[in-house]
Simulated scan of single mutants.
Amino acid sequence: MAELNSDEPFIDTNKLIFGIGQVQQITGVSGRQLRYWESQNYISPIDQKKGVSRQYSLHTLFLIFHINRFIQQGFTLQAAVDHAKEFDAQIPALRQFLKKQLKGVEISDDQTVIDFGYFNAQRTKRVYGVIDRNGQTFFEIRDVK
């Protein structure tokens, strides 16, 4: 299994910037909706020069995606924003956990196995996340040899 643990980011996500047209294409949210969400302070474009079209950060793109996802699930706009922001607040903890625990991924024809490292302080067992060929997911705890 290839080691994934590194303190260096794969890519500087602050440099990933999307124009309003790209955001509309990616998320399916209209420009009109985006401008309304901005007027309500639910989202913010990147500070820009006068005469330049709106641009959004990757972080805002994900927020827009999640707001829209919750709306499609039947939530009101305000509830969708609240849920999206709650989810957004959980991301740093998930990122930190995965950064420290993710040890590697092994892909074969019939399954993908994700190594989450040791299960216990004694280092006698490891935890693996498995995705089988049907897309089913589950955990396995294996003895260390």
Score class of each variant (00 low, 15 high):
31 G>H: 00
124 T>N: 12
114 I>Y: 05
94 L>F: 14
32 R>V: 08
37 W>I: 01
76 T>E: 07
41 N>E: 14
73 Q>T: 06
77 L>D: 04
124 T>P: 02
34 L>I: 14
55 Q>F: 06
97 F>W: 11
82 D>A: 12
4 L>T: 11
12 D>H: 07
60 T>V: 10
97 F>P: 01
3 E>N: 12
73 Q>E: 15
16 L>Y: 04
109 D>P: 03
133 R>T: 06
58 L>T: 03
35 R>E: 01
45 P>A: 12
126 R>Q: 13
78 Q>V: 13
13 T>H: 05
74 G>E: 10
43 I>Q: 01
42 Y>R: 01
67 I>M: 04
122 Q>S: 14
11 I>M: 12
124 T>W: 03
88 D>P: 00
77 L>K: 03
67 I>E: 06
18 F>Y: 11
106 E>H: 07
2 A>L: 07
124 T>A: 02
76 T>H: 02
33 Q>I: 08
20 I>K: 00
125 K>Y: 08
127 V>I: 15
17 I>E: 09
49 K>A: 13
134 N>Q: 13
133 R>N: 08
101 Q>L: 04
41 N>I: 03
132 D>K: 03
65 F>A: 05
7 D>A: 10
129 G>F: 06
118 Y>C: 04
130 V>F: 09
105 V>S: 01
86 E>H: 11
11 I>H: 07
142 R>A: 09
102 L>S: 08
7 D>K: 14
7 D>E: 14
144 V>P: 04
91 I>K: 11
18 F>S: 01
44 S>V: 05
95 R>V: 15
106 E>L: 09
20 I>M: 06
113 V>K: 14
106 E>G: 03
125 K>W: 03
84 A>M: 05
16 L>V: 08
86 E>A: 12
144 V>K: 12
107 I>A: 10
21 G>D: 13
80 A>S: 15
95 R>L: 13
42 Y>F: 15
7 D>Q: 13
63 L>C: 00
48 Q>H: 15
4 L>Q: 04
70 F>D: 05
77 L>C: 01
1 M>W: 03
57 S>V: 04
